[in-house]
Design a protein around this nucleic acid. Structure first.
Lengths: 208, 208
DNA sequence: GATGGAGTGGACCGCAGGGTCCACTCCGTC
DNA sequence: GACGGAGTGGACCCTGCGGTCCACTCCATC
């Protein structure tokens, strides 16, 4: 069915997904009803069920996929080119800024929580996102190696995995407390420790 | 009202909270209804509303408080005595094991998500938990300093904050993907980096 | 053994909100 | 300009579930 959509149809479907994403970000998954989405997107029930025959859950999955795309898109300018310590610093700032702005709403997290992470398709969304993210970080570390800023024997995968966990943890604490201090600390410490791999004489942590 | 409960009343209230916690862990917040809790705890609606006059949300807050207590209680034997690298390793194992067992259910997270983190009382639950947790980690680092295993100029607070974020991130990835690799990597890397503060000649990461 | 309040049982209510249905319009094709 | 299928509108249905209510029991106190 997805492939057979008219241009008009595709536009409507897209309008629904993006509008739903808006509403969901504003009110949260729990509080958002189909009627809210309908009102926001100027659509009728029949349209919604026309494009998402299995109803709300199918819509939420579509929105989750959309939001997952956003995460990397938002940091792409920096994430794709982590080949100097300055680039890493800029990326760090971008991440912190992005999540500070976002405040205590985690669109993707809430969605997945509501749908259930266990269903294969759903879990694939987040595992795919995390994998890509971590690969970008690993590529960044290798770029540092290529630029002779890091020695070749750094355990790239472990560093990348730990870095990703640091971000996730910082974000999750930001979501719970509203404070971005941990996100900053985690990123700063991780980057500082990574940097020490290349220069053991460095200070132990960057100043806040 | 809380103070005026009979022994019998307190027992019932407690039975409800603990039973609810069980059901919530098994089915998740979204899928759990009051009737489920009632059935599990062999209680009637009137009792539930007798002890939690504002209904479901009040019950969930009580359960959240209960679960928050559990988190630290579960690691207390290790968390209170982080005065050697071996103790840190044992604690690491305990954390990994605990969260691997728990699987992809995060009782506290789901609860708070459902209730909303913005209400003052609710946010206090998680901020309090995180603060205590981080203080224990900081105390552990200071214990290492006292034992001359770490120099005195380590930035204890940043290290502790980053460590806490690492755990949270690892757990949150475990919840999403079902894999504990990131949790392990994050903890190992964090501890290894911390350890390098005391011995710069050490290898860059512990082997998995 | 009367009194009253805490504790308990469960029938019942109200409605939000997901999902169905059918009638309609729009537009490309012949 | 008839035909048909995609696209649209919105009334309606129905269940699940949070919450209310009242009748009852249990037990401490006098």
């Amino acid at each position: 069915m997805r492939g057979e959509l008219t241009a008009k149809g595709r536009a409507t479907r897209r309008r629904i997904v993006e509008g739903a994403a808006e509403v969901l970000r504003e009110r949260g998954v729990v509080a958002t009803t189909l009627d809210d989405v309908l009102a926001r997107t100027r659509t009728s029930k029949s349209q919604l069920f026309h494009y998402f025959p299995s109803g709300k859950d199918e819509l939420l999955v579509a929105v989750a996929r959309f939001e997952a795309g956003q995460v990397l898109a938002d940091q792409e300018p920096h994430l794709g080119r982590l080949d100097s310590w300055e680039a890493w610093a800029r990326w760090r700032d971008a991440v912190v800024e992005r999540y500070e702005e976002q405040g205590d709403q985690c669109p993707l997290g809430s969605l997945l929580h509501r749908i259930g992470r266990t269903t294969p398709g759903t879990r694939a969304i987040v595992t795919g996102l995390l994998r890509t993210w971590q690969e970008s970080l690993a590529a960044g570390i290798r770029a540092l190696q290529a630029a002779d800023l890091l020695p070749g024997d750094v355990d790239v995968e472990t560093r990348a995995a730990a870095l990703l966990a640091a971000i996730q943890g910082g974000v999750s604490i930001l979501l719970s407390t509203g404070e971005s201090g941990h996100l900053r600390a985690a990123l700063d410490q991780s980057i500082a420790d990574l940097r020490r791999d290349g220069d053991p004489a460095r200070p132990r942590a960057t100043a806040g």
